[in-house]
Simulated scan of single mutants.
Amino acid sequence: MKANDVHAMSEDQLGDELAKLKKEQFNLRFQVATSQLENTSRVKQVRRDIARIKTIARQKAAQAKA
């Protein structure tokens, strides 16, 4: 997911996407624990996407207050 795509989302869409990624991260952790994970790089991608969404959501909230 690109930062430009995240910037274009509304706050509600950001929350939905964050929930989806958290659920995927949870499932990936289980796959790692049971040695069923095939694409190990997906764990890193999801973690970074979560951080990107949280950062941009915080920036939008700060702009709304200012």
Rank of each mutant, 00 (worst) to 15 (best):
S35E: 11
L28F: 03
V43E: 09
R47H: 09
D5Q: 11
K2Y: 06
R52T: 14
K60F: 01
E17R: 15
A57S: 12
R47W: 04
R29A: 10
K60I: 03
K20W: 03
R29E: 13
A66I: 06
S41A: 12
K54H: 04
R42C: 02
K23M: 11
R48I: 07
N39W: 04
I56A: 04
N4G: 06
F30T: 12
E24A: 14
K20Y: 04
G15M: 06
D16S: 06
F30S: 13
E38P: 01
S41M: 08
R29Q: 14
Q36S: 15
R47G: 10
Q13A: 11
E11L: 06
K2E: 15
M1F: 02
S35N: 12
T34W: 08
A66K: 13
S35C: 07
F30H: 15
D5W: 01
Q63H: 09
D12R: 11
Q63T: 09
Q59I: 07
A64L: 07
H7C: 07
A61D: 02
T40F: 14
F26Y: 15
I53N: 02
Q59R: 08
K22W: 04
T34C: 09
D49S: 11
S10E: 05
A8M: 05
V6P: 00
D5T: 09
D16W: 02
D49T: 03
N4W: 04
E24S: 06
F26A: 13
I56H: 02
K60V: 05
A62K: 13
N39K: 11
S41N: 09
E24Q: 15
Q59P: 00
R52A: 05
K20N: 08
E38L: 11
Q31G: 04
V6S: 00
A19L: 11
K65I: 06
T55S: 14
Q59H: 09
Q25L: 10
E38G: 06
K23W: 05
K60C: 02
V6A: 03
M9A: 02
N39A: 08
L28M: 07
A57H: 05
A66S: 12
A66T: 10
A19T: 13
Q13C: 00
I53M: 02
Q13V: 03
V46F: 01
I56R: 01
A66G: 06
R48Q: 15
Q59D: 04
A33R: 08
K22L: 11
Q45K: 12
D16M: 09
A33H: 13
K22I: 09
Q13N: 02
A51Y: 08
V6I: 15
L18M: 08
R47Q: 13
A33P: 03
V46Q: 01
R52S: 04
A64N: 03
A3K: 14
N39Y: 10
F30W: 15
R58W: 05
Q36N: 15
Q63C: 01
A66H: 07
A66Q: 12
S35H: 14
K44P: 00
Q25C: 06
D49A: 11
R52H: 06
L14G: 03
N39Q: 10
V6F: 00
K20L: 11
L37D: 02
A19F: 10
E17N: 12
Q59F: 01
D16L: 13
L37F: 10
R52L: 15
S35M: 07
Q25W: 03
